[in-house]
Design a protein around this nucleic acid. Structure first.
Lengths: 145, 145
DNA sequence: ACAAACTCTATAAACTTAGTAGAGTATTGC
DNA sequence: GCAATACTCTACTAAGTTTATAGAGTTTGT
């Protein structure tokens, strides 16, 4: 399962993209609008800033804003930032690779092969899910309704 | 991430399928061969028994054995049994459905839509990953090597 | 100077995971 | 019938993670 952190981060990013033309957005506003505990959100936005997705301005008129284009920020990266690996087994991750202690032969492990395929599909799908794509999806879902 | 329970369950099931012709298999043998803590494995096999995948025999000559065909047992079911939902968001699961507290409108949520697609792909892939399929994969990987 | 607003550190409750201990129950072989 | 074998059940626990909260600190604009 996605952590609350990752989920909140995604909501905040979509919010920031939607209000990109309004200058810096207050943490308190995002927290209110998206129903996220403010103090918790502060830490999340800070992480996104350290990761180079957002920037902030202090003092009056301050707030957070996107510094990447909405089509350059994808859910795979967000998920990795907050929840670590996307794969369901440590032996099929790239960045977080870890051998399974109980594994006899990784190269011929059928379970590994299965979860490698799942991982690849998921990563591909999440990479194509950019903020821009999510907003477009929401527009299209709204029209149908 | 997959829990150890689910991983161990998969290893045990593959083991049982491979030795299906030898009658009941001892917990201790599976634990030794697959490098799984025995006491932990006992609980896992019991769960699989309650779920109707395995049966057991007590006393001398006893042990566990498959009562479903290897092509009828898939990793989606195993994962659901031990780890709950396969989906990454509670709002896109069928059996474990839960509304996201912070969600404004589920029907038009772009994040939900993304993770619904991921879920569907993953479930499909894991359903096709039966024990029989995993063993066949291992055979084919061994030959390549 | 002062208020606004982000930043940083510390702490904690609740929950989950992974595993252990030990007594209990059923079955087989002799 | 009895001893050995092997699964079953209940209870417990250590460690780690998640989801926060509290409060002091720092920077900026006017």
């Amino acid at each position: 399962m996605l952590s609350k952190k990752a989920k909140y981060a995604m909501l905040a990013l979509v919010h920031l993209a939607k209000h990109q033309d309004e200058g810096p957005i207050l943490i308190s506003r995002i927290a209110d609008d998206e129903h996220i505990p403010q103090k918790f959100l502060e830490a999340i936005l800070l992480d996104l800033k350290k990761d180079g997705v957002l920037a902030s301005k202090k003092g009056k008129g301050g707030g957070y804003y996107l510094i990447k284009e909405p089509n350059e920020v994808n859910m795979a990266d967000v998920m990795r930032l907050f929840d670590g690996a996307i794969a369901l087994l440590p032996c099929v991750t790239y960045k977080y690779y870890e051998r399974c202690e109980e594994c006899k032969d990784e190269e011929t492990c059928g379970i590994r092969e299965t979860f490698l395929e799942v991982r690849n599909e998921t990563v591909e799908r999440l990479k194509s899910a950019t903020i821009a794509h999510i907003i477009a999806t929401e527009d299209s879902l709204s029209k149908k309704k």
